[in-house]
């Protein structure tokens, strides 16, 4: 069932809400929809391609040097993403800052390399990477939606430098709950969403 390799990442083993991997960027850059989307796209790219390469090389890489090999492969794709953002999306690159290079140590990527790509054929690994990456994107978008809404009193729909309109909540936007765009707000929102999903038996 190849489709299952993709769809399982969305809900059943969602990286953030179920595996609780890759929480660092999910906490740090979920301040706005725009940042969250940029980070999500970067993670999908790195995860899918590193899964592909690692899966292709899975019978070549000796077992005891697999971790350094995985890290080098992942770091290559992260460097490519970093250069691309710097060259073509400078403002996004500036607001994501250090968190783009830090994708190298994002545990969801090494986690999928170790748990899936190093044991499964290329096509299934690509689907796994796409699925887990999309699951990450959806989760971080959801978190950033609530943080931006509560923390700034409105939402600015902007994706990779293009703006798709925005709205604000009248009155509330004059005195938004700034707490939610600060680090503790991220913990609170993730915790509440996790609790809600458990309660509703989604995960």
């Amino acid at each position: 069932m190849p489709f299952n390799d993709f769809s399982k990442g969305l809900i059943k083993i969602n990286p953030i809400f179920v595996l609780a991997l890759g929480l660092c960027p999910a906490l740090a850059v979920s301040i706005s929809i725009e940042n969250a989307f940029g980070m999500g796209i970067a993670v999908i790219f790195v995860l899918t391609l590193s899964n592909l390469i690692i899966s292709l090389l899975r019978n070549v890489i000796p077992k005891d040097v697999r971790i350094p090999s995985f890290i080098v492969i992942i770091a290559t794709f992260v460097t490519i993403v970093n250069l691309t953002f710097k060259a073509y999306l400078p403002s996004l690159s500036e607001s994501l800052g250090i968190y783009i290079p830090l994708i190298v140590v994002n545990c969801i990527i090494l986690g999928r390399a170790e748990a899936f790509a190093s044991k499964n054929p290329p096509l299934r690994s690509v689907l796994d990477g796409l699925g887990e990456g999309t699951g990450f994107l959806l989760a971080i978008l959801l978190i950033s939606f609530f943080r931006e809404l509560l923390g700034t009193g409105g939402i600015n729909f902007a994706i990779l430098g293009y703006e798709f309109g925005s709205f604000i909540i009248p009155l509330f936007s004059d005195m938004p709950a700034l707490f939610f765009i600060m680090p503790p707000g991220a913990f609170l929102i993730i915790g509440l969403l996790l609790g809600l999903f458990k309660r509703m038996d989604v995960i």
């Binding site: 090389l57 070549v60 890489i61 000796p62 040097v65 350094p68 090999s69 080098v72 492969i73 770091a75 290559t76 460097t79 490519i80 250069l83 691309t84 710097k86 060259a87 073509y88």
Partner: peptide
Amino acid sequence: VVLTIIVLASSLSIYVYNNTV
């Protein structure tokens, strides 16, 4: 040998990509 080849391939691809951007 394997690790060296991986590192070399990685450096080469970053070098090429860096030149294009």
